[in-house]
Amino acid sequence: MDEVEFLRGRVYGADHEDAGPRPDRVYAHLVGGPLDGLLLDVTDRSDRELREVALTTEIGRYGPGGRALYGRRGTGDNRLDWRGDTPGAP
């Protein structure tokens, strides 16, 4: 199994032992970019907050500390599309 296949269906930011989705939470699918296939817990986030989300990643264009930018396709859609990478905070 390669790294991409291993990450599919796992929750972004969750511990490796507890990386699967929980039934009491709401998730969005990350589509494209370095975090493609991961789920993001959006349970307490508004549609406005999901217009653009910057997620820290070590596997994006800017390496460790860089961020992958994702945004919701439309109101109520459970997919966040990759919009590019950005360096992390200085």
Rank of each mutant, 00 (worst) to 15 (best):
G76F: 07
P23S: 08
R8W: 00
P87W: 09
T57W: 13
G88A: 10
P34W: 11
R73Q: 10
V4M: 10
R25W: 00
A89V: 13
G66R: 15
Y62A: 10
D81N: 00
D36F: 13
R79L: 10
E5L: 15
V11G: 11
V53K: 05
T57A: 10
L39S: 03
L38T: 12
A14N: 02
T86N: 03
G63D: 04
D47V: 05
L40D: 03
D2N: 14
V53Q: 06
Y27E: 00
L80E: 03
R48W: 04
I59T: 11
G71H: 09
G74R: 12
G20W: 03
H16M: 12
G76P: 02
D81H: 04
Y12L: 10
L39P: 05
R22D: 08
E17H: 04
I59K: 13
E49S: 11
R61S: 07
G33E: 08
H16A: 14
D2E: 11
G66M: 14
V31W: 06
G65Y: 05
V26K: 07
E5A: 15
G60W: 14
L80C: 05
G32H: 08
G37L: 12
P90W: 09
G74Y: 07
V4W: 09
R8S: 11
N78I: 00
T86V: 15
E49I: 03
D47S: 13
G84I: 15
A28C: 10
R61Q: 13
T75L: 07
P90M: 11
Y62T: 10
R10G: 09
L39I: 05
W82E: 06
G74K: 11
G74W: 02
S46Y: 05
R45E: 04
D41G: 07
G37D: 09
R73L: 11
P21L: 02
P87D: 13
G65H: 04
A54I: 01
A14W: 01
A89P: 10
V26I: 07
G13T: 13
T57S: 13
R45Y: 01
R79Y: 03
A14I: 02
Y12A: 14
Y70I: 08
P23N: 07
E52R: 14
G20A: 01
E5R: 15
A28E: 02
H16V: 14
R67N: 09
G33P: 00
V26H: 01
H29S: 10
V42I: 13
V53G: 03
R73H: 07
D47I: 05
E52V: 12
E52A: 14
G20C: 02
V26A: 04
V4S: 13
A68F: 07
M1C: 06
A68W: 10
L40R: 04
G32W: 08
R25T: 03
R83V: 01
P87K: 10
L55M: 05
R8C: 03
R22I: 01
P21K: 07
D24L: 01
